[in-house]
Simulated scan of single mutants.
Amino acid sequence: MFTGIVEHIGTVAEYKELDETLSGGNGVSVTIKDAAPVLSDCHIGDSIACNGICLTVTEFDSNSFKVGISPETVSRTDISSWKTGTKVNLERAVSQDVRFGGHYVQGHVDTVATIKSRTVDGNSIVFGFKLGEQSYEKFIVEKGFISLDGTSLTVTTIDDDGTFYIAMIKHTQEHVIMPLKQVGDLVNVEVDVTGKVIEKQIEVHLQAQIADSKSSLSQLIGKIVEEKVRNALNK
């Protein structure tokens, strides 16, 4: 679990596609350097969010660490665009004494979004984004949380076509990679898990109600159908 408060910016030192016979197909191995601030208490198997992607440390030294990335993660995120020199946001998994300054971030990227606009507004930069998968638009709400490249941000407004916006203050600009990106670049998106949990609970509840002929919902649906049929016959 993460908070979306980026601790440090690292640099991709090596991006290596793994042999299909060893990795199961199209996985990659990435080494990230300039990472000393997040490695002081590191252990093999620890989770570090890299641009919002929860990845497992397989090797490390005082300044760099290596992660293996599955084909599914590569296909769902912006990892395929990484190369030597790419800057990435880094955050260690939360510990017992971490202040929860952002929001609950799993590190499980849902999809990517394209930067559609970038506008300076005083000391802030307003970014506009369009999701790659429209099915996630229902989880993005005005003034709600969203994780973009692992950064906890607040949605300021949403256009009718689903384009959503965030305003990034000067302090955040100095500590994350977003200002390095341009219109047309991709960002990793993790929507607020609360919305997904609520949707699933409602779906399960409705299915159970519909399956039970004695439930209040089934009885209500039955009455509505009977009334519609009766009205149709009386015409």
Rank of each mutant, 00 (worst) to 15 (best):
D160R: 11
W82N: 04
T84L: 08
T163P: 06
G144C: 05
C50T: 13
L180E: 15
T84H: 14
G144E: 10
V189L: 03
P71G: 00
S124K: 10
F139D: 12
I166S: 04
F129P: 01
D34G: 05
V6E: 02
V109P: 01
V155Q: 04
S80A: 09
T151M: 07
V94N: 02
Q201N: 09
T172P: 02
K228P: 00
Q207G: 12
V155A: 06
F60E: 05
P179A: 09
F129E: 01
F145S: 15
N234I: 13
K223A: 15
G68P: 01
E226H: 12
C42A: 12
V141W: 03
C50M: 07
H43C: 05
V225T: 13
N89S: 04
H103C: 05
Y15D: 04
V225N: 10
D78E: 09
E203W: 12
T194W: 12
H8A: 08
K200P: 02
G162V: 08
E7N: 07
C50P: 00
A211V: 02
T157V: 07
S124M: 06
I224P: 01
V229Y: 14
L148P: 07
Q209L: 15
I210Y: 11
E137D: 11
K228V: 07
I224R: 14
T3L: 11
T111P: 04
S81D: 10
I221L: 14
I44E: 11
D46A: 01
L233T: 12
D110E: 03
Q209K: 09
D121N: 09
G222N: 11
I79R: 06
S216H: 12
K196G: 04
V112D: 02
T172A: 03
V6M: 05
Q219E: 13
L217R: 03
D185M: 07
F2H: 03
D212G: 09
D161Q: 06
G25M: 02
F100K: 03
L90A: 02
A36D: 05
V98S: 08
T151F: 05
V88Y: 03
M178V: 09
I140S: 05
I169A: 12
D97N: 14
G107E: 03
V189W: 01
T156Q: 14
S213L: 14
K66G: 03
D46Y: 06
L90E: 01
V105A: 05
G184Q: 07
L18S: 04
G101A: 07
V187K: 01
S62D: 15
Y136W: 14
Q209I: 08
I140V: 15
T3R: 02
I146G: 08
E91M: 01
V225A: 14
L153F: 10
T58D: 02
D61N: 10
E20S: 06
L148G: 06
K130E: 13
Q106F: 13
Q219V: 08
G52W: 08
Q134L: 10
D149R: 00
S215Y: 11
T156I: 13
V38R: 03
Q182V: 13
G24W: 01
N63Q: 14
K16T: 15
T119A: 07
S216Q: 12
E190I: 00
V112N: 09
L131M: 08
L233C: 09
E226W: 13
N231D: 08
L131S: 06
I224M: 14
C42D: 03
I115V: 11
K223S: 13
A167V: 08
V105T: 04
S95F: 05
